[in-house]
Amino acid sequence: MTDRRTALKWTASLVAAGLLPMTPLHAQDVLKVGFVYVGPVGEAGWTFAHDLGRRALEAAFPGKVTTTFIESVAEGADAERVIRSLAQDGHRVIFTTSFGYMDSTLKVARQFPKVVFQHATGYKTAANAGTYDVRTYEGAYLAGVVAGKMSKSGKLGVVGSHPIPEVIRNINAYTLGARSVNPQATTRVVWVNSWFDPGKERQAALTLLAQGADVLMQNTDSPAVLQAAQEKGAYAFGWDSDMSAYGPKAQLAASEIDWSVWYKKVVGEVLAGNFEPRQQVWYGLKEGAIDLKRLGAMLPADVAPLVEARRQGILDGSRPIFAGPLRNQAGKEVVAAGQAMSDADKLAMNYYVEGVEGSVPGGK
């Protein structure tokens, strides 16, 4: 289990200095792995997806791994206390699964140099603390393709959590996917400034629906958006996991994350004694960490083949999502014709692309 993003290896000098335990466990030892969750596990969404990854990890290494998870941990001082407690209790690998855990993870990592820390979605690292992420914008783009085909009004809505690059990137990708099949489609965003607040999420969804949006996406953790869409006869998507149980008539598809891909890799290396520390890991469709699944029966027959064609275009590089000519909301070119946006620019995204209405709080 680890936090999100791609590839710098720790040097052998760290091992030689004794900063990391790179020898395999003795046969009788069981590796303790800890997880810190920002919301309740529940049965859908971000934290639920992480917990599915945790369970898959245990299943992959029977008798060799034991896991602990602490749910609904507030970002800030509470997170630091919980992370430190896991380290003190002998957990050799600790996954902290929310952006707001970043500074707390780094602080505790410095105090426990022989523990492997992985922080999801952040950008700050240390010798024994890397970050991991999933390219959720790839799932958002494919959802946008479906939304563009299904919207009758051409007005789409997104319930946003926090205005950080990760979320802005998903909103932009969703809009680009929709405009690839309906160039006149527009997206409006309502921010709730929380990862998990069903009441605020529901109110935001109802506001968007009242403004004419008929297909919603979210970057929040509860199924409240999907439930609101079903109540009003609109459509929405499962986010981070399948949410169809909460709105079977409304869920067009689900953008699902599989965290186990990375969790099993990291823990397998630690068990074998050949763990290769990475500072940043960013997995996507290529690695099987994200995909748009469970396309609904209400979709026209041409939608599934279209989604598959776009998926293959992302995989083989023939149709990158953030490709030029691409302009921001103000009309400024951010990617030239014939070029594709770099990962560095994706990670720093703080603006809306053309087609998104309103403005990014504190952005451009």
Rank of each mutant, 00 (worst) to 15 (best):
A74F: 01
A74E: 07
E75W: 00
G76T: 07
G76Q: 06
A77M: 07
A77Q: 06
D78E: 13
A79S: 15
E80C: 00
E80F: 01
R81W: 08
V82T: 15
I83D: 02
I83H: 03
S85K: 13
L86E: 11
L86V: 10
Q88W: 02
Q88M: 10
Q88T: 08
Q88I: 08
D89K: 13
D89V: 11
G90F: 15
V93D: 08
V93I: 13
V93N: 08
V93F: 02
F95I: 00
T96S: 13
T96Q: 15
T97D: 15
T97F: 08
S98I: 05
S98K: 07
F99Q: 04
F99C: 01
M102N: 15
D103H: 11
D103S: 13
D103T: 06
S104V: 00
S104Q: 12
T105D: 08
T105L: 14
L106F: 04
K107N: 09
K107H: 05
K107C: 00
V108M: 01
A109T: 01
A109V: 03
A109G: 00
R110P: 02
R110L: 08
R110H: 13
R110C: 01
Q111M: 09
Q111N: 03
Q111I: 04
F112I: 09
P113H: 05
P113V: 04
K114A: 13
K114V: 12
K114C: 08
V115T: 15
V115W: 09
V115M: 08
V116H: 07
V116F: 07
V116L: 14
Q118V: 10
H119S: 12
H119P: 05
H119D: 08
H119K: 02
A120Q: 09
A120H: 13
T121D: 12
G122K: 01
Y123G: 05
K124N: 10
K124S: 10
K124Q: 13
K124W: 04
A126Y: 02
A126E: 13
A127V: 06
A127G: 00
N128M: 10
N128S: 12
A129L: 12
A129H: 07
G130D: 11
G130F: 10
G130T: 02
G130W: 04
G130P: 13
G130M: 03
T131S: 04
T131Y: 00
Y132S: 11
Y132L: 14
D133P: 02
D133R: 09
V134N: 13
V134G: 15
R135F: 10
R135E: 10
T136H: 06
E138M: 02
G139H: 08
G139Q: 06
A140T: 04
Y141L: 09
L142A: 01
L142H: 03
G144Y: 14
G144I: 14
G144N: 14
V145I: 13
V146I: 15
V146L: 11
A147L: 07
G148N: 11
K149V: 05
M150P: 12
M150N: 11
S151L: 09
S153E: 12
S153H: 09
S153R: 11
S153A: 12
G154N: 04
G154D: 05
G154P: 03
K155N: 05
K155F: 01
L156K: 14
L156T: 05
L156W: 11
G157I: 15
G157V: 14
V158Y: 10
V158G: 04
V158H: 06
V159A: 11
